[in-house]
Design a protein around this nucleic acid. Sequence first.
RNA 1: GGUCCCGUAGCCGAGUGGUUAGGCAACGGAUUGCAAAUCCGUUUACCCCAGUUCGAUUCUGGGCGGGACCUCCA
Length: 479
Amino acid sequence: MVIRLHNSLTRSLEELQPLQPGRVTMYHCGPTVYSSPHIGNFRSFLFADVLRRFVEDQGYAVTQVMNVTDVGHLTLDDIEGGEDKMEAASRKTGLTAWDIARKYEAEFHACQQALHVRLPHHMPRATDFIQEMGVIIDDLLQKGVAYQRNGNVYFEVAKFPAYGRLSGKVLDELEAGARVAVNEEKKDPRDFALWKVDAKHQMQWDAPWRDGARGFPGWHIECSAMSTHYLGEQIDIHTGGEDNMFPHHECEIAQTEAHTGKRFVSIWLHARHLLVDGTKMSKSLGNFFTVADILQRGYTGLELRYALVRVQYRQTLNFTLKGLDEARAAIARVHGARQRLVRIREGREAAGGDDLDGAVASANAAFTAAMSEDLNVSEALAAVFEFVNVCNKAQPSVAGAKAGLSAFARFEDVLGCFGPEPVPGAVADAPAELQDLLAERTAAKQAKDWARADALRDRIAAAGWRIVDTAQGPRLEPV
RNA sequence: GGUCCCGUAGCCGAGUGGUUAGGCAACGGAUUGCAAAUCCGUUUACCCCAGUUCGAUUCUGGGCGGGACCUCCA
């Protein structure tokens, strides 16, 4: 099936046509590791994860690179009162910039695990690619599209006519609307830094090119260096949050294409920011959630993942705690349908005669069609839930149960928000004491001692198991 | 000020020039000792005003409202 994606560069849906048949290269702008990852960060990263999973589902071999920005990308000269993120965190906490970077990088990885992210094949740190950045900077200097001033190196935007195309910025207007202090050093206010010199900066390197001054890299150059290193000069897909479109990606295009002379990226994808309770998430409004905040409230990573993934990436997602409760209920519905199919497959529940072949085929087709059209997860989920309904109504055969489970396994493989296949659930699977309680409860029911029966049921429920009464007798299922 | 996106039932959210999205919640029924789960059924829709059209929630224009970007940001 043809995969169509909305290319930000052309503002239209485009067919994914990999540079190499059967192989897709993806680069994702990753975290800047100066604070704890929040749910907004992970909306973007989960989008990248689902994209990778679906492209793989469609038979492509994917190579995925996500950078870790562990050196600051904001400089005093660029913004009035601005300060490097890493340096600012260091000043506030007393930790070194390096400690800050490693601490939050570790947090980021923990969140990836909690949210069931399939890890990118490479997650390079910017600080490990200073040499590679230097090679590009040197080349840009040689080509005359970058220039040095007091050790600082700037890219000369006027030398790259396509600058502004991705974000739709008209160059003349950028100056008028700029809210930055004029940097007298630059030839043009729009020029951006490739290399900065600042004696106060904790992270410093000797400039990796001849006659360069000791300093640190500008923000944008790391992505050019790392994507080129791992994926080559041209890549199929590049993603990021919508805020990255300008200036970051605009600058990436300029410096990379000036360096290689080739088109850098085929398809640019940008994830829309989420809102919380209808407004922009911010610490001052008290609607700011880190991933850890949500987990501490008792929601699972799976539930958070569902809540963040269920809306198509280009739509504004309104995140609410109620939405997490809905996610929990929705996952439980899928879980229940899968659990019954497992019981039938394992011979723990009577099988019927439905092979489910037609239902499986149409659910898969609808799911694929939805995902192929710019990753329409909402529509894909509708296909999943319609399939849940069909399965629940059917009397599946053992083969039907297997077929149904394979469909659910595929949906899980792509979306990752339903969890692994449930265990069958039977009295024999429960701890012995719960089996004893269940036997007591059955006896109480036979004696029509309803109060005692209900009390025993509550005790079993408190232990995390649910009693399901059937015509064949009670069954215990882990909740 | 410039550029761009959105406005669908109680909530979240698909989609379409005429015909059922889906989830959550609520209500009624089946089932149950009562529940849970499941199934069946039901209720509240397409921001406002013009225009195009046989017909618009869907296209066009205007208005109102919300949001994003314009060198921190996913």
